[in-house]
Amino acid sequence: MQASVRNVLTAALLGVLTVGVLSAALCTARAQSAVAVSIDNFTFNPEHVTVKAGSTVTWTNRDDIPHTVVATGHAFRSKALDTDDSYSFTFTTPGTYEYFCSLHPHMVGTVVVESAGGGDAH
């Protein structure tokens, strides 16, 4: 499963190589241990992030309407975030975490957590 995630990621990475800015952003997200996701215009931005195990992702709501951050698999669940409120979660276990806003469920995002050991996913 981890291998297939990596394959998908590799393919995704190849797909965006032509867009230098995007791939640079992805690399930045990979290297950091604290990653920020902003909620603007009813979207999670960036919608997909990849982090090392042990990293903390912080979501901040920039909309005039409250939103939530809820993992489909129940790994995490924020309270309702009013404008400028934040929610953080530290990912210790590698895997793919899909999440959504439980108030506006068409808002979806993904956090991919890779093993902390030098990019090896095992």
């Binding site: 899909e98 999440y99 959504f100 439980s102 108030l103 469920p105 068409h106 979806v108």
Partner: peptide, 17 residues
């Protein structure tokens, strides 16, 4: 007239309505 009040804002599924 028969009035029916429904709740459609709970247990929403990711990607859904």
């Amino acid at each position: 007239v028969h009035f029916i009040g429904l709740v459609n804002v709970i247990d929403l599924k990711a990607g859904g309505l």
